[in-house]
Amino acid sequence: MKGPFQKRVYLILAGCITFILFFTVFGDKGLLRIFELRQDMARVQARLGDTRAVNETLKREIVALKGDHRYVESIARKDFGLVRSNEVIYQFSPETKP
């Protein structure tokens, strides 16, 4: 009589352990979810670093635009094609190769 009862206890324990292991690995707060969240966090931190670098560049450009007249002049020349009143511009057509 002890034999079948003991088998049932072992099966119930094995089932409980399997159930617990399944949810430990595959559950909402399981190991796989933790791994995915860590990967997401690494990606977000990389994007944050890139965004901070862009922000620093933009801050330096704002300071230059507010205080450096030579920088403003170079932007006006490069982006808008502006020239001073006493300057002469020579334009050459691009060479064509035979």
Results as ranks from 00 to 15, higher is better:
56 E>C: 15
10 Y>M: 11
29 K>G: 11
68 D>C: 09
29 K>E: 08
50 D>I: 09
31 L>G: 00
56 E>Q: 14
89 I>V: 14
90 Y>D: 03
70 R>Y: 11
93 S>C: 09
17 I>D: 03
69 H>A: 11
15 G>R: 14
54 V>M: 11
19 F>Q: 07
85 S>T: 05
14 A>T: 02
4 P>V: 15
16 C>S: 07
86 N>A: 11
88 V>I: 14
57 T>Q: 13
76 A>G: 01
72 V>E: 10
62 I>Y: 10
34 I>C: 03
75 I>Q: 04
41 M>Y: 05
42 A>H: 09
88 V>M: 12
40 D>G: 03
81 G>I: 04
76 A>D: 12
36 E>D: 05
18 T>D: 05
85 S>R: 14
51 T>M: 13
89 I>C: 14
96 T>Y: 11
29 K>T: 02
28 D>A: 02
36 E>Y: 08
91 Q>C: 00
5 F>W: 02
75 I>Y: 06
97 K>A: 12
76 A>T: 06
36 E>N: 06
50 D>C: 10
32 L>W: 15
16 C>K: 10
24 T>S: 13
95 E>C: 06
29 K>N: 07
46 A>P: 00
7 K>L: 13
67 G>V: 12
22 F>N: 07
91 Q>V: 02
8 R>S: 10
67 G>K: 09
78 K>Y: 00
12 I>T: 06
64 A>N: 01
34 I>T: 13
84 R>L: 11
95 E>L: 12
48 L>T: 14
76 A>W: 08
89 I>H: 11
42 A>K: 09
28 D>M: 03
62 I>V: 15
17 I>R: 05
29 K>H: 08
28 D>C: 01
61 E>M: 12
